[in-house]
């Protein structure tokens, strides 16, 4: 699913790039704190996904596919971090492994990072509580199909590939790949739940890990608390006003003492 440079026309590149850029911006904004400790775990998972995406498995005669890894990443990291981790994977692949082009980074990000993650997240929100494995398989399958549909549309309009071929071939292969990847992800989830149950339960994970020592992110305050503190500060300031000194402060004194005219 990694598209090389030179296949799509400029309008298609711009359109897909803008959509992917918008989604990446949302992920960047929504991500709480870039210096938080979860970065190490995101990087580990992204490294696994990079290694997994390097393995192309033959599916049909003349067609092979690789896993995307959006299911596991979304499940463990949440959608915003998963998009960023997959974006990092796509960037490293384009820069170092000639896997996907530089000008189509937006297109590849859309089809590998954004759409699969959104599909898995939607599936998790809808069915995750009742049947997590089924939600994972369904989300991964839907993500693959959605990406294939989008890519086929781009190929039809941006490279004039015949629709029958683009949709039939691409969507067919990716649907099959999505089913296989969904099953593999559900298996991996089972193994990880057994080995490290804290990974999948946010509360358990928080209980196991201490708070970051240098968490620089602003803590979310309850709505209205800023106004309360502002009112308290104004009251204190008003109460102390009669005791204020009329003498200049240190900086003003220094400035005054260095004025040549005086």
């Amino acid at each position: 699913m990694h598209l090389p440079d030179g296949i799509l026309t400029s309008p298609a590149l711009w359109a897909a790039g803008n959509v992917a850029g918008g989604a990446a911006s949302v992920a960047l904004v929504r991500r709480v704190n870039p210096s938080a400790r979860g970065v190490a775990f995101s990087g580990t998972l992204a490294a696994f996904v990079l290694a997994a995406q390097a393995l192309n498995v033959p599916l049909l005669p003349g067609a092979s596919a690789h896993v995307i890894g959006a299911g596991l990443l979304t499940l463990v990291l949440g959608p915003a971090r998963a998009v960023l981790a997959l974006l990092a994977v796509v960037v490293v692949q384009a820069f170092f492994f000639a896997d996907g082009g530089l000008t189509v980074l937006g297109v590849n990000a859309l089809h590998i990072a954004v759409l699969p993650v959104l599909a898995v997240h939607a599936s998790q929100r809808l069915f995750g509580a009742r049947a997590p494995n089924a939600a994972l398989v369904l989300g991964t399958f839907a993500g693959n199909v959605l990406s294939a549909l989008s890519l086929a549309t781009l190929l039809v309009f941006g490279a004039h590939v015949p629709p029958k071929l683009a949709f039939g071939w691409l969507v067919g292969v990716q649907a099959l790949a999505g089913l296989v990847e969904g099953a593999l992800t559900a298996m991996a989830r089972g193994n990880l739940v057994r080995l490290a149950p804290g990974l999948f339960a946010a509360r358990a994970a928080r209980a196991q890990l201490p708070e970051p020592l240098d968490d620089l992110a602003p803590r979310s305050a309850p709505p209205g608390s800023a106004w309360v503190w502002a009112a308290v500060a104004l009251t204190i300031a008003w109460a102390l006003l009669p005791f204020a000194s009329r003498a200049p402060d240190a900086l003003e004194r220094v400035v005054e003492s260095h004025q040549p005219s005086q």
Partner: peptide, 29 residues
């Protein structure tokens, strides 16, 4: 050397740190 270069080009910290950690973790994996 990718993450420092991306930093010099103004890529946001969140994406840069994701790339940096990925690269660093590849070796560890």
């Amino acid at each position: 050397r990718l993450a420092p270069a991306l930093r010099a080009l103004g890529v946001p910290l969140a994406l840069r740190s994701a790339i940096h950690t990925l690269v660093w973790q590849l070796e560890h994996v």
